[in-house]
């Protein structure tokens, strides 16, 4: 029963949502009970999903608290970091829930300029995340230096494409080949870099996207038909 009911819900919701686009909506002239039902389902299933998504936050928060509290209690590996996580989590949660510093009331905005949460966002969260992400530039430089080598024909092709895109995406690239006449415009580095991204790159991406989409369709069918059990905690 514990598995059957969720599986039934999954199948019914899946089938209804798949069929929804095939029925004309009542406001567009669809008549009869089926268009009304499918329009209702289309409108409300999304809202129900979004309500569930909010509860997922509560579950996620509770799980985070439990995991780190256990680690602190047992003095597990790197437990001071867990303690820091707990303190930060609790502080931000309390400041946000009670809208400290901001306009009072349930309808007050947590992102109000005077709120404590905005202060944390602007002066702690933003600099920390920006700094971490900015470090990527250094790793990318080092990785490019090591990876782009003329080791084979394919690697040389990759190097040439990377070279054109890297330089073509800067104003230097534009200036460097701006003298080329209009007949040879396609050889200008900026145009060439867009061509590489639009033509060979698009061809590659399209095939990847179509492959992924077919995989998603197959997986969704397995879920809807009840063949795939792993999602409900069972065996495949």
């Amino acid at each position: 029963m514990r598995r059957l009911i969720p599986r039934l819900i999954l199948t019914v919701v899946g089938v209804v949502l798949v069929l929804t686009p095939f029925f004309v909506r009542p406001e567009a002239g669809g008549r009869g009970p089926l268009p009304v039902f499918f329009a209702y389902a289309d409108e409300n299933f999304s809202v129900w999903f979004n309500v569930l998504a909010v509860f997922a936050f509560i579950l996620g928060g509770a799980n985070l608290l439990r995991t780190h509290a256990l680690r602190v209690r047992e003095r597990g590996r790197d437990w001071p970091y867990s303690l820091l996580t707990l303190v930060a989590f609790t502080a931000v949660l309390v400041l946000g829930l009670f809208k400290v510093g901001g306009p009072p009331g349930l309808q007050g905005s947590v992102s109000h300029g005077d709120s404590a949460l905005t202060w944390i966002f602007d002066w702690i969260y933003m600099p920390l995340k920006s700094t971490l992400f900015a470090l990527l530039a250094f790793f990318v430089a080092s990785a490019a230096y090591r990876a782009f080598r003329l080791r084979s024909w394919e690697a040389s092709l990759l190097l040439a494409a990377a070279f054109v895109v890297l330089i073509g995406r800067t104003p230097f690239g534009v200036t460097l080949t701006a003298w080329l006449p209009n007949v040879l415009r396609f050889l200008r580095l900026d145009e060439l870099s867009i061509w590489i991204m639009k033509v060979p790159n698009t061809a590659g991406w399209r095939s990847i996207l179509i492959g992924i989409s077919l995989g998603v369709v197959a997986m969704s069918l397995r879920l809807i038909l009840g063949i795939e059990h792993a999602v409900l905690g069972g065996r495949r």
Binding site: A141, A144, F148, R149, L150, F163, I167, T170, P171, F172
Partner: peptide, 24 residues
């Protein structure tokens, strides 16, 4: 922001060229 990015791109290209010169 494009100034620093353009310079960073050029430095990366220079290092890639240096690496390949060394390899050759």
């Amino acid at each position: 922001g494009m100034g620093p990015q353009a310079v960073a791109h050029c430095i990366i290209i220079a290092f890639v060229l240096l690496g390949n010169l060394g390899l050759l």
